[in-house]
Design a protein around this nucleic acid. Sequence first.
DNA 1: CACTTTCTTGAGTAATCGTTCAAGAATAAT
DNA 2: ATTATTCTTGAACGATTACTCAAGAAAGTG
Lengths: 159, 159
Amino acid sequence: MKDLEQVLDLRPGSIYAAFGSKDGLFASALDRYAETGAARLAELRDQHGPLGALKAHAMALADDPAPARACMLVKTLLEAPEGPVRDAAAANLRSMETVFASLFREAQAAGEIAAHHDPDRLARRHQSDITGLRATLERPDVDATALATEIADGLDTLR
Amino acid sequence: MKDLEQVLDLRPGSIYAAFGSKDGLFASALDRYAETGAARLAELRDQHGPLGALKAHAMALADDPAPARACMLVKTLLEAPEGPVRDAAAANLRSMETVFASLFREAQAAGEIAAHHDPDRLARRHQSDITGLRATLERPDVDATALATEIADGLDTLR
DNA sequence: CACTTTCTTGAGTAATCGTTCAAGAATAAT
DNA sequence: ATTATTCTTGAACGATTACTCAAGAAAGTG
């Protein structure tokens, strides 16, 4: 809260008038974070097609200059106490997973990956992979691009 | 600290006399956590061989009844402010990675996986996968065993 | 046994936390 | 221009935080 007050140049009262509570503010931030994430994926799909979007998305993470490389939803899931905030994080992760699933389904329809795969399973696994990648990006001693490339290349083996 | 005081039935002074500071206590806990983790992997190797240990380790995570399923080292890496504590988490993760690497090397020598793989790359990727798995375990709506099985089975495809 | 060392306690401290609210300032509507 | 509404502020609040220390209790030693 201190950091926000400083960067917004606002006193606590204003922030509480707008968001009600610290948790309310955080919940809003979570939702916005999830929204923009999904929007970026949709954009990538239009540019590169379904499978290309998944690959581009993974590669983009490695080059992301954002201070926190790990996913805000995951960080919240791991650290928030049981309650509405943590539940919201889990729910947003689930809807991200369904976005991945429909990209895999689309890729399958387009013949980019083999028909025998279950898109829901692929999505679950891919989200886990992305979560691992993004956590690993926080380590200063790991080659981010190499790891992202491995994951992106793995998607090509689903042909 | 409150929780610890309660469960240990000790007053703050005793804890500070023993560990110096909250960070000192946390650093000790981190080291112990990493030690016992490595010890468990060594035990699994003696029981199941190198590749079997990696598979058993992944599967054991899914059944772990511990309250926090995600890795303490990863949680620390993601949330601790820059400083010695976070550095210790990163260093412990690195040494876990080298344990994975030597298991892969051993598996390779035993002919359990093909010779053309780079054990260090395998280790890096596997640790990322495990990190993703363990974070995903915190989600109440995901089939933990299914995901762990997928990762364990993936190790067999390295033949 | 007395005595030294180690461990533990009770009672504190100063700083920070999330939060509130009456009153003032700025903006919009009539 | 006056009123009604929204936004912002300054100054606080009780609770919690990490931490300290002199004094007492327990354990080990000769």
